[in-house]
Design a protein around this nucleic acid. Structure first.
Lengths: 220, 220
DNA sequence: TTTTTTGTCCCCCTTTTATGGTATTGTAAC
DNA sequence: GTTACAATACCATAAAAGGGGGACAAAAAA
């Protein structure tokens, strides 16, 4: 068996889900699909890393809501111990914050349990091929994450070019003195700009200005 | 025609691409697909908004590299004038920064020109259905965007709970005095924590600490 | 052509931050 | 039962930032 080509080696899958019926139907679905092999199933994700270590799956299907432990924490654990394992979240609801938490925790895919069986198989093949499988609706939410970050970019427009230079320098962590040197202007000029910036941004300290500019992504 | 049901009304598509061959094959592909209708094609995106206004498409296929204008700027323009129009970027290469620029500009999908024709049709139907069509490789890059933001979260761990409180307050824009009041501790204690925070973060000003913490997403 | 904006600079004065110390408690680890 | 760390607090001094002005030339807008 060891001598077979890589392409003929089954994709090892581990399933974490507290619902036995779901575990079983996933097992049926996946294990009888050529090329896939369910090597382990668990009804909770306590000590997930240890469980993974024992069965070394290539792909993990992880429920979010399990008793005694959070699937998202499990993802963090697994990803930090086994960065190459791909994890697909598998859940009933598409709660916006759960999605982002899961993705930030290191999940690569996000499927709803209502997904057609054939799509689940495709998702696993997809993730092995370097894809990031997710339902259209979830992909859309991920996109909105990007879009939301450009809404009020008009704020930036009210700053003159020189004021923007100074604000950028503040974000870099430069002091007045450093900014003056960097922009080849007097420190008094820097002070003038900063006063105007605070005025326009409705803040009254470097920290506030920097926090606001970074959070609202005035620059990139 | 106007009296037909919505589901029977064709999806109006506009194409921006400087390559005539590509325009023509897209036209062939899409226009002869039931339910789709190419209502306009352009070899550049100068005055994109005006062009859109004339033909009012539901979906736009936009090349990134066109002479005389940037597809990404066109996306910004169109999106700000017609927020409900869905735009799919359609390009030869998958340059990482172009992808993010396009998505931040408001594109919802991102396809490579090497995509199979059938997938292009699916993508258009997908986007109408609220999806965000993109190739697996691109979806993966988008995922990496999230993942990249959790890499060095161990930094945060070295801060004690109280130090984290103070740092969070700094990010909120609070001054020493305000933090002291807010956390019910002496301003001297605040100063002590801040000194330790700077030490651990390897910075030496509020601005740097705040910028670093926000950029590296120590909190959320 | 006049007015407004932008970029540049200066002064005075107050408040806040930064740096470098020391010190006391309670708790957790060894 | 000592060592280590966390949380708390204080002092002194220097440096930086904030708030209030005013000024002037060049460019842009009205």
């Amino acid at each position: 068996m060891q001598s077979k080509l890589n392409t003929e080696v089954n994709i090892r899958i581990a399933i974490f889900d507290d619902n036995e019926a779901i575990r079983n139907s996933l097992f049926q679905l996946l294990n009888y699909t050529p090329g896939l092999e369910v090597v382990a199933m668990f009804d909770n994700c306590v000590n997930a890393t240890k469980k993974i270590d024992e069965y070394l799956p290539r792909v993990v299907l992880m429920d979010i809501n399990m008793p005694d432990c959070s699937g998202i924490d499990a993802v963090k654990e697994i990803k930090s111990a086994f960065p190459t394992i791909d994890i697909i979240m598998f859940t009933v609801f598409e709660e916006e914050n759960k999605i982002f938490e899961a993705l930030q925790a290191g999940a690569t895919g996000y499927l709803l349990k209502s997904t057609q069986p054939i799509k689940i198989i495709e998702a696993i093949q997809d993730i092995i091929a370097g894809g990031a499988p997710m339902t259209a609706a979830i992909a859309r939410k991920v996109m909105q994450f990007f879009n939301n970050q450009i809404k009020q970019q008009h704020n930036k427009d009210v700053l003159t070019s020189r004021e923007q230079d100074v604000l950028k320098s503040l974000i870099e962590g430069y002091s007045y003195k450093m900014i003056a040197a960097h922009l080849h202007i007097s420190i008094e000029t820097v002070r003038t700009y900063i006063k105007r910036i605070y005025d326009k941004m409705h803040v009254n300290s470097m920290t506030e200005a920097v926090a606001k500019a970074i959070k609202e992504r005035w620059f990139n």
